[in-house]
Simulated assay, not measured.
Amino acid sequence: MSLCNIIKVWLKNKQIYFQLINALYDIFIAGQETTANTIIFSVIYALNYPEKLKKLYHELDKVIGSDRRITLADRNSLPYCNAFIYEVQRLVNLLPQNLPHKLTKDVEIRGYKIPKNTVILPQVSSVLYDEKAFPNPETFIPERFLDSEGQPKRIDEFIPFSLGKRQCLGESLAKMELYLIIANFFNQYKLESENGSLPSMKKVPGVTVQPHPFKCSLKKRY
């Protein structure tokens, strides 16, 4: 093999290496922190809304009733659990500013002309907190995602992962992780505030919002 070919192979492998590193970095930054913070806020909202937590425990006891591991096969049997998770995602509004995008061509929206190369920030917050779609939007109400018979209800304005071609690539993975971790966590542990002190529901601003530190007690349910 000539020196020229050796260099080409080396450069190609080096490029693949850096592509792999960047892909793993994206998965960790975009997937780990967002999912972890959402899970922590599920604990915060559960402690601040004990009547909702009681309903969640009731469904888990009725459907699961043991310390067995909850799987994806149980998902359709746990409508309130799913609604609980959806409301956590909506209320936490994890990425309030979304991510910037640049227009590749001139666009006109409702009479407003936006020129090519304009940087825009889609405001997912304005949708997740829209009072018409989500009455009393500042309150944690999982029931808003259920119909009168307690079955899942679709709400088109529920877009925590944004929408369109640029929506979150990890949506399916994140939904699966949130369901499996949150459902199993609450099934295994009884959650209680420490000394009657409730955790703050205020958020530390950032690219993704962060929870304020808090303490709580956990007791095995089985």
Rank of each mutant, 00 (worst) to 15 (best):
L99S: 06
I39S: 00
K12M: 09
K203Q: 05
F134I: 02
G170M: 07
G170T: 06
F18H: 01
D67H: 08
D61E: 14
K12S: 15
F214G: 00
A83Q: 02
L191A: 06
G111H: 06
S148I: 07
I159V: 14
C81I: 01
R69P: 06
F18M: 14
K52G: 05
S148E: 15
L173N: 08
A23Y: 10
T208K: 03
L53I: 02
I39R: 01
L146A: 08
Y17M: 15
E149T: 14
K14F: 14
D106E: 15
K113P: 05
L218W: 11
R154V: 03
S42H: 03
N117F: 10
V127C: 12
D67K: 13
A46S: 14
N5M: 02
D147R: 13
A73R: 06
N76S: 15
K219N: 09
N13H: 05
A30S: 10
I44G: 06
K175C: 00
F161W: 12
L94D: 11
K220A: 06
K175P: 03
N93F: 03
E157H: 07
H101A: 07
V92Y: 01
S197M: 11
V207Q: 13
G65S: 09
S148C: 11
P79W: 11
N82G: 01
G31Q: 05
I141S: 03
I159Y: 09
T35A: 11
I6C: 13
F18I: 02
Y112D: 10
Q167E: 10
L72M: 12
V124Y: 08
L24R: 07
N187L: 05
I29V: 14
Y189P: 07
L20F: 09
L11R: 13
P213M: 09
E177A: 10
L53H: 06
F134Y: 08
L180F: 05
R69W: 10
N93W: 12
L91Y: 06
D130I: 02
H58Q: 13
H58E: 15
V92F: 02
S126D: 01
Q15N: 04
N195Y: 12
C4I: 15
